[in-house]
Structures are given as structure tokens and as C-alpha cells.
Write a protein that binds this DNA or RNA. Sequence first.
DNA 1: CAAATAATGTTATTTTTTAACATTATTGAA
DNA 2: TTCAATAATGTTAAAAAATAACATTATTTG
Lengths: 248, 248
Amino acid sequence: MNQRQQELLDRLNRTGKTVIEAEAEHFGVASMTIRRDLRFLEKNGLAVQTKKGAIPKPKIYAAPLNMAEDSAVKRKIAAKLLEMIEPSSTVLLSTGTTTLTFARLLAQQNLPLTIITNSIPIASALFQTRIKVILIGGELRTTSLDLVGPAAEKYLSEYHIDLLVTGCDGADAQQGFYTSDLNLANLEKLSAKVSDKVIVITESRKFGRKALVKFAEIADVDAIITDNHLKAIDRELITRKGVEVFTT
Amino acid sequence: MNQRQQELLDRLNRTGKTVIEAEAEHFGVASMTIRRDLRFLEKNGLAVQTKKGAIPKPKIYAAPLNMAEDSAVKRKIAAKLLEMIEPSSTVLLSTGTTTLTFARLLAQQNLPLTIITNSIPIASALFQTRIKVILIGGELRTTSLDLVGPAAEKYLSEYHIDLLVTGCDGADAQQGFYTSDLNLANLEKLSAKVSDKVIVITESRKFGRKALVKFAEIADVDAIITDNHLKAIDRELITRKGVEVFTT
DNA sequence: CAAATAATGTTATTTTTTAACATTATTGAA
DNA sequence: TTCAATAATGTTAAAAAATAACATTATTTG
């Protein structure tokens, strides 16, 4: 990589994008040269060519972040939740793919909020918005870029939260909510304890699937937001326990 | 957003990219329609148009991660530091570009270590390695994806650290080390207090530049690692205070 | 130094993108 | 329901961008 390509990459990384014609002029070279540079950077995994230039190659967190495909169902659930958020409140947003979808939606709004989370992808999604972000410390899970463990619990225990928003790996209309990680289950239990209100957001297909550890009873939560494929019998069971159900 | 756009976005997120002509065929519509869809997705911050299609919008602001250009100087300093690391020790790696370069080097080794850090880029760099990573919680700084503030200090105060490795924004051979953020300075002071040993790694060009807040005296640290352009007079002043100086 | 090689520039050609308008579908009010 | 209004999609010509191929200029190296 030559001097010009180095500088080009630096400028690209600093500004977030580059435009061929402008760079050609800046460096005083033919635009074909910049095109060749961008091809080179792309081939080496440092950039992705766009319409008239390039952007930096999406980096480090890309994989774990993309794994949370923003499905249409999740986006609808997130939109429903958004209606219920009080401006200026403090919301604890637990790790998960549905909660991440919600965070991305939040990032596009202009709500004054404080978000506390144990998920690096969620914290990143809210980076450089009006939202004040507090990341819970703890041990980094190698599977999902989030923070759990006793240290995380200790950290969280000092806070008071208006609203906890969490997802789940499995749910049962009679039994409650499940997750597949013991450490995370402990953190979820504590989260509910320090929060005034608890909302679970989850795709309806999670109902009927149990996972490793139960972290909450149905009656422990105030509301569930899910999609409109929730079975009538499940809905009935849940509302009978005094828990509100919202569907998309 | 209509049905087709939803599905297009889902496919895009699942596969990581999309090609106009292929999608036009898949949906049985004119390629112009897919073009319009991609424009729409781009306008809504969900995708970035590329040469013949689009990729998902990079989920995280890339600049602070990339800003740590791994300069040759920084890589040499990092290599020097690596020689001094005790296996199985607990190292506190503070936020900064030079420390990030070191983290990237660490990720390529196979050392059993525990790294505690307040930097998301550093934690990410060490993701999925043999290294156990503990991320200090706290308030997310909008400039640099790291965590500071009273909560971070409280969290850190519970730990005992073998070695603190930190950089600086400015240094003076008589006065000490400077940073440009008050919150970070407080955290650095505390970090030194809970650590047995302190090493500062910094490019020599930082000497002679003072920044907003002093966070340590020269004599507070055990060693300084820098490049071989450190002025002889500075080196003399530092060693006279009983602080070791290593150069690349 | 001179041949070989690499980098850059130039330009004609191809491909992609856009804009503008035509056509078809959808909506909503009478 | 009909029928205008509006929105979505299709078609095509024009513009812009990207490429390939070759010319020219630097740079290396024996």
C-alpha cells in the first residue's frame, strides 16, 4: 500500500466515505487512479465501493450485529413499543436481537432518554444520538458481545429504573419466560427487581418453546408486546393473569 | 415500507448484500423498481447502495474504531510492551489509540490473560480470543466509544490489578502526563491507585504537548515505552526520577 | 545506464444509473 | 359501485460512471 492509498484510507475512515472525483482532485491524479486505489482497498477488505466512491468496510462488530436480522416482525414489535416510551425516562434495555431492533429504531428518533444496557451492539447503535447511554460493566460473553456475571449484577443493583424492556429465548403462557444462559437469567431477575415496570417484547413463535432457565413468571411483567400470530389461548391465559398483551 | 421492500431488506440483512438484477428477477419486477426500493432503504438509513446493489447500513459508527490508525510507530511500541507482559496476569488496558494497537497485537498471540478495559474497541478487538475480557461499565462517551464517569470509577474501585497500561494525550518530562478529558483523568488516577505497576505507552511526539488535565506525575509510573525519537534531555529527566524508559 | 517492471494517464466502449414520461394499480370520495 | 386522484411500477432515451485497453511516464534493478 503506497502513501496515497494510506492517506486515502485514513481520510475514508475519518469521514466515513469518499468520493472518487473529489479525491482525484485532492491528490491531483486521474480519477482512474483513485478507482484503482478503491479496488485495491476493497480487495484487501478495507473498503466497500459505493456508487461514486467508497465507505469503510464495516468492522469489528459487524458479524454479531448482523446476526440480529431486523425482521419485519421485530420492527413492528419495536414500533409498537416505541409508542409506549415516556420521554425523559430511564429504560433498561436488555441484550437480545429484538431489543437491538428497538434500539436501532430509537436511534432514528429524537427522544430524550437514558438507556442502560448490557449489550455492546445496543450501546453502539445508540452512539452519537441524543440518548444518554450507560453500559453495564461485566464479563464479556464470547457468543453475543454482551456483559453478564456477578460484577454486572453488582453494578446494576445500584440503579433505579423506570422501565425494563427485555426479550426472551422461550416463553410459556403458564410457566413464564426463559433464557438459555444462567448468568443472563440472574441478571434478568435482578433487572426486574430494580425496575418499576417490565415489558417483554418477543416474537410469538417463542411461545411454546422453553429454554434452559426460567427468569420470570408471566405475572412478574406488566405487559407483553408480540406479533399477531399469538394463539388465542395463550393470550387468554396471559390476560387472565392481569398482564396486558399488545400485538402488532 | 411495502411487502417487497420488507423482504428485500430481510434478504439483504441475512446475506449481507443484494444485487439489483438478481432481485428484480427474484421478485419478478423491473430493475427500476428495485433501484427505487434501494434508494428508499438508503434514505431510511437501512442500507447503503453499492455498485450494482446494496449492503446493509454499517451498524456502528466506524470512525472511532478506525481512528486508531495502527501506525508503524505504535505497532513497534506495542511489540515492546508485549515482551513485558506476564502470562496469567490481570492487565488494565485504558482507552486510547496506542493501547488499541496493543490490544490488536494481543489478539494475535495466545497468551492467557485477563484484560480489564473501559474501551469498547479494545473489548471488541479481544472478542473471541483466549483472553478473558472484563469491560468496565459507565457512561458512554460520544467521542470515542469508551466508558467513564462516577459509575465507572465505583466499578473499578473493587478490582485489584497487576499492571495498568495507559497512553496519554500529552506529556512533559518534568510535569507528568495529561489527558484532554476530566472524567477520564479521574478514572486514570483511580486506575493507577488500584494497580501494582503502571506502564505508559506513548509516541515520543506527545512529549512537550500538554493537554487539559494532568492525571499522573512522572514518578507515579514504573516505566514508559516510547519510540526512539524521544529527546535525550527528556530521557535524562525521566530516568533521574527513577522511571525506566524503553524505546523501540 | 538501460531494460524491465510498475504505476499512472487517456480515451473509446460498455455498463449502469438516472430522468422523464407512459402505463397500470390502488385509493377514496360521491 | 364508479370515477377521478394518487401512487406505484414499467419503459426507454439520455446522462453518467465504470471498465478495458492501450499509451505514457516513473521506478526499480541488474
